[in-house]
Structure formats: structure tokens, C-alpha cells
């Protein structure tokens, strides 16, 4: 297996295109586990952590730019980002242990394309976009368009995500992410829900977006969420409708981590609870 650690995006893209069976490594917390399990044999690893712009967080007039190799500890430790996007930060902070937090990256979490990735539903709720660079140049896509199935992405040969772009936050806007795991730490989500809300001056939801995780081959955008939540103050019947819609949108599987029935129910509970947290956070701003 070949190992390269290029210092620029162009070099990385060239290496990815040139090396047979090459994979991008940022934190490596998924990749090295796959490497150890022996399957599939990797031809090469392109380590992107020496590329400065992939490891930095920048606040601009348009919002935030978060490098794809930024690790969880870096993101949760960034005060301005955590204030603007508490839900995305808490999703990143849920990935693995303290040790994993020191390595696991946002880009890796999204591009590993696990249906249970914690940051993807939160990024979906945040209307985050990914900047992709490849042999054909740069393109920008919505985060929900990256994963196409378990372990599969829409990235072409030689392409990689270099940064995530999150929009600027208006007043009275906040997000939240919750997941269900059997323990308190160290598990993969059995279901997850990210909710982003913007309220008007009267505390009425003006804009809402919900992403769901671990209940379908890829993280889902809950399309009906905006209809259900907009114009409400999250009254009980509204939350019940949200939970029901989340459960109905889910197309989960039975596996060692949970049952179809369980995931359908719990994703609704999580959506409801995350909405309440986001609502409270937004109201405090």
C-alpha cells in the first residue's frame, strides 16, 4: 500500500487520480478499521491533513467554511462555530470517544457514507453544501447529494470534498441534533435527527429543516418538516405530526443495532425532542 501526504489540494487530486485503489484519509478512524479488517485491500492512502485549508475553520460574511479534515475536537472547540451551529457541533462531538474526537473528521464522516453518520443529518438540517475538487475542477453540491447508499458516494474518480459551507445565521435561528444509542457513548446511532429552526419575533417558526439518520440507506431530508413546523410554536399536536412524518419517511432495516419498528418510532421521538431543543435555543437568541 502506498502512502502520500500532499501539501496542496491539486497534488492530492493528482495523487488520487494517479494511484490505483487510492482512498482519501483525513482522521482515518473509519479507514484504518477497514484496513485492519483486510477488506477491501487498499491500493494507496492519500493523507490530506497536511493541506492547511482542509484543516481550518473560517467565518466569512456568507457563513462558515469548515475544512473537510477538521476533527471533532477542533470543531466543538471553536466558540464562534459552536454558537452559530450548536447542532452541527454537537453531532460532530458525538462521534466516538475523546480519542476519536482528536482524529475523526467531518469530511470522513460524510464521505464514509455510513447511513448512521451523525454529522450528515445535522449538516442537512443546516443546509450545508460541500465543495468538491477533482480532475474536472471544483463543484458545490448539497450535503445530502454526497452519499448515494451505504458506503457509496457520488464522488467521481479523483474527486474529494475539501470543505463544507454553512450559511450565515439570522437572528432567532438555532439547530440541534439528537441520536439514540444503547449506551451513553461509543456507539453508532440507531437513529438520529437534526433540526434547524428560525423563529419570527413572536416565537413562531418561520423556517424549518429536518434531517434524519440511520433510518434509510442514506441520511434523509424530511421534506414535510417545513410544512408541519412553519407557522407553529411546536404545540403538542404539531410535534406529534412531526414524529409521525419522520417515522413514515423512514425506510430502515433490521440489524444488530435495532429493528425496523424501533427505528421508525425512535426517529420520530428524536425529531420531536431535537425540535424542542432547537426551538428553545432559537428563542434565547
Amino acid at each position: 500500500m502506498e502512502y502520500q501526504s500532499p501539501a496542496s489540494i491539486d497534488e492530492a487530486v493528482a495523487a488520487l487520480a494517479a494511484l490505483e485503489g487510492a482512498r482519501v484519509m483525513a482522521g482515518g478512524t473509519d479507514l484504518l478499521v477497514q484496513l485492519r479488517s483486510g477488506a477491501p485491500r487498499l491500493g494507496a492512502i492519500v493523507d490530506v491533513k497536511k493541506i492547511a485549508e482542509m484543516c481550518s475553520i473560517e467565518e466569512t460574511a456568507e457563513g462558515f467554511s469548515v475544512g473537510a479534515a477538521v476533527c471533532g475536537a477542533q470543531l466543538t472547540g471553536h466558540d464562534a462555530f459552536s454558537r452559530a451551529w450548536p447542532g452541527v457541533a454537537e453531532a460532530a462531538g458525538l462521534i466516538g470517544s475523546t480519542q476519536i474526537q482528536g482524529r475523526a473528521s467531518l469530511g470522513g464522516n460524510v464521505c464514509n457514507a455510513s447511513p448512521a453518520a451523525d454529522t450528515t443529518p445535522a449538516l442537512i438540517a443546516a443546509r450545508a453544501k460541500a465543495e468538491i475538487v477533482g480532475p474536472g475542477g471544483r463543484r458545490i453540491v448539497e450535503v445530502e447529494k454526497i452519499a448515494t447508499g451505504p458506503g457509496k458516494t457520488s464522488l467521481g474518480k479523483g474527486e474529494m470534498v475539501v470543505r463544507f459551507l454553512l450559511p450565515a445565521r439570522p437572528a432567532r435561528a438555532a439547530d440541534a441534533y439528537l441520536r439514540m444509542i444503547p449506551r451513553t457513548e461509543m456507539d453508532i446511532a440507531v437513529a438520529g435527527a437534526g433540526v434547524s429552526l428560525t423563529l419570527d419575533r413572536g416565537g413562531v417558526v418561520a423556517d424549518a429543516r429536518v434531517g434524519l439518520g440511520a433510518v434509510a440507506p442514506t441520511a434523509l431530508v424530511l421534506d414535510q418538516a417545513a410544512d408541519i413546523l412553519t407557522g407553529t410554536k411546536l404545540e403538542d399536536d404539531v410535534l406529534a405530526r412531526l414524529a409521525a412524518a419522520a417515522g413514515a419517511a423512514a425506510t430502515p432495516i433490521d440489524d444488530k443495532r435495532g429493528t425496523i419498528d424501533y427505528r421508525r418510532k425512535v426517529v420520530g421521538v428524536l425529531a420531536k425532542r431535537a425540535a424542542l431543543i432547537a426551538y428553545q435555543r432559537a428563542g434565547e437568541r
Binding site: T29, L32, G96, Q99, I100
Partner: peptide, 21 residues
């Protein structure tokens, strides 16, 4: 990376030695 028995500090940050090349 699931047990922490290989915890080391790399540039001051806590990581699992088994998850770093």
C-alpha cells in the same frame, strides 16, 4: 479504537495509537 488501551498524546491531543499510521 473502541477500548482506549492504546491511548497516546500526539502533539498534545489524545488519540488511539491503533487508529494512526
Amino acid at each position: 479504537g473502541d477500548c482506549g488501551a492504546c491511548s497516546v498524546l500526539v502533539d498534545g491531543r489524545l488519540v488511539c495509537g491503533c487508529l494512526m499510521l
